[in-house]
């Protein structure tokens, strides 16, 4: 455990909690892509099947359970409890265009052709693009609530911090995982445009709105 890894995890946790609280407090999931949240629930489910096969630490187990639990709670709030506020008309990204190629790639490029390993690889690839329906929704409506941008910022920073964690692990532990690194770079790049808008607009007190 290094400082990048820990702050990355905490940033990820903050993102998840911010989104849950935003929906819960406002009793509304307007502006949130339910599709992205379903993809994240799928990501955590397929990645953390190792909860059943290996124990690493109390920290590891608790965080995995919290991530999975919060992911399903978020999906429940969007599609059940606050369904009336869900903005389905703007959440029109075709997720099959992500899930199918990512599934195929996980079968072709993996460390070991075993069910758990393929599912882990699938989750890594899928996570890297799971935010696309959300970004697509924002580009369609042309704006995002400030609290939603805080969520996205924390979520993007998390994977960027993991990149530093992997650099650290490579230098000090001689460890690197090419699948995670390439997917993590792709994931971080997808946020760059958003990071720019966040820093130039939201941090200066302006609402994030895109030019028409």
């Amino acid at each position: 455990m290094n400082v990048f890894r820990l702050t990355g995890d905490l940033s990820h946790l903050a993102a998840i909690i911010i989104l849950l609280l935003k929906i819960w407090k406002s009793r509304s999931c307007a502006g949130i892509s339910g599709k992205s949240q379903i993809l994240f629930a799928l990501v955590f489910t397929t990645r953390y099947l190792d909860l059943l096969t290996s124990f690493i630490s109390l920290y590891n187990t608790s965080m995995k359970i919290i991530y999975v639990g919060c992911a399903y709670a978020t999906v429940y709030l969007i599609y059940a409890k606050f369904r009336a506020t869900y903005d389905g008309n703007h959440d029109t990204f075709r997720v099959e265009f992500l899930v199918v190629p990512v599934g195929g790639l996980a079968f072709l490029v993996n460390h070991d052709f075993s069910p758990l390993e393929i599912l882990w690889t699938f989750s890594i690839y899928l996570e890297s693009v799971a935010i696309l329906p959300q970004l697509f929704m924002i580009s369609k409506t042309g704006e995002a609530e400030t609290i939603t941008t805080h969520y996205l910022f924390c979520l993007g920073v998390y994977r960027a911090l993991y990149l530093f964690n992997w650099i650290w692990r490579f230098y000090f532990e001689g460890f690197f995982d090419m699948i995670a690194i390439v997917a993590g770079v792709v994931q971080t790049i997808l946020y760059c445009d958003f990071f720019y808008l966040y820093i130039t607009k939201v941090l200066k007190g302006k609402k994030l709105s895109l030019p028409a």
């Binding site: 690493i56 991530y67 995670a180």
Partner: peptide, 10 residues
């Protein structure tokens, strides 16, 4: 799938 380092990451 037995890489402990990888299972350690979230």
């Amino acid at each position: 799938s037995g890489d402990p380092v990888r299972h350690d990451e979230l």
